[in-house]
Design a protein around this nucleic acid. Structure first.
Length: 260
DNA sequence: ATGACATATGAGATATGA
């Protein structure tokens, strides 16, 4: 099963690029973040035409996540438990059976958290702990599980071209990285990093500003974290950096893994 | 230092992003 994640920075604004990529790459599952539209405005027919089922947890203007799948989408969960006041559409989970195995897939758009310190940073850290609690509970099933999405976390210095520039940023602060570590300590594996240990220069986001892309001034913040049962199937991980060079691109590119 | 750039809303300027 090939599973990809992509923060598309508005599905309406980048529908042509996303649909072209799906047509070319044909992932089995694609997790989308920042669709920035409500459920009924999601262009599901475009993807259904390409052979996909769609589950959408949308929101007007901000956030919004969706899962596309060539297989059926079952046991859908919309939103993350643990905070009744949280009305951001940032979390969507579903079980995807491919005929041989079933993979629990969580599509997530973790809060940015800037400026830090402040209420937005507190929200980010709280959200990360809620995600840890959710994932820990799911781990008890001892089944393949993938947490895929825009984590808004730079795990280590090698995941940024200029780590110094991010030292006071919510994406790279010690508290953020510690929360990401705690999430991994329940037994999750960073798919890309596990296959490319110590390799610098692999990024999934480049800012639109200040010529970040031509300077390759990027960061790796889009991740797929695997339960042990999913990690056992891990064959490859790939960042589709070429997508950032398209005309009018998203500022993120797809990250894809193969489980076989 | 602030803004640079991009998107949505809504029709100008502001909020958000990372």
């Amino acid at each position: 099963m090939r599973i990809a994640t992509w923060n598309v920075n508005s599905i309406k604004a980048h529908l042509e690029q996303v649909s072209q990529w799906v047509k070319a790459e044909k992932p089995d599952v694609l997790c989308l973040q920042e669709i920035k539209c409500e459920d009924q405005a999601f262009p599901a027919p475009v993807f259904e035409e390409l052979g996909y089922n769609c589950a959408v947890h949308g929101q007007k203007t901000y956030n919004g996540v969706a899962i596309l799948s060539r297989f059926s989408i079952e046991n859908v969960v919309r939103g993350l438990d643990g905070d009744a006041n949280d009305d951001h559409a940032r979390f969507l989970a579903a079980t995807i059976p491919d005929g041989k195995k079933a993979v629990r897939v969580a599509c997530l758009y973790l809060p940015n958290g800037n400026p830090a310190p402040g209420p937005k940073f507190d929200y980010k850290l709280g959200w990360m702990e809620r995600l840890r609690v959710w994932a820990l509970k799911e781990m008890q099933n001892e089944e393949p599980m993938v947490l895929a999405g825009d984590f808004n976390v730079i795990p280590s210095a090698i995941d940024a071209k200029n780590p110094k520039a991010w030292e006071k940023d919510a994406l790279f602060l010690p508290e953020t990285r510690a929360a990401f570590d705690r999430l991994q300590y329940i037994g999750l594996t960073d798919a890309f990093r596990s296959l490319h240990p110590g390799a610098p220069g692999h990024y999934s986001f480049w800012d639109y500003q200040a010529g970040a892309w031509p300077k390759n001034n990027g960061i790796r913040i889009d991740h797929l974290l695997l339960s042990p049962q999913a990690a056992d199937f891990l064959q490859s991980a790939r960042i589709h950096r070429d997508q950032r060079g398209n005309e009018k691109p998203s500022d993120h590119v797809p990250v894809e893994i193969t489980l076989a």
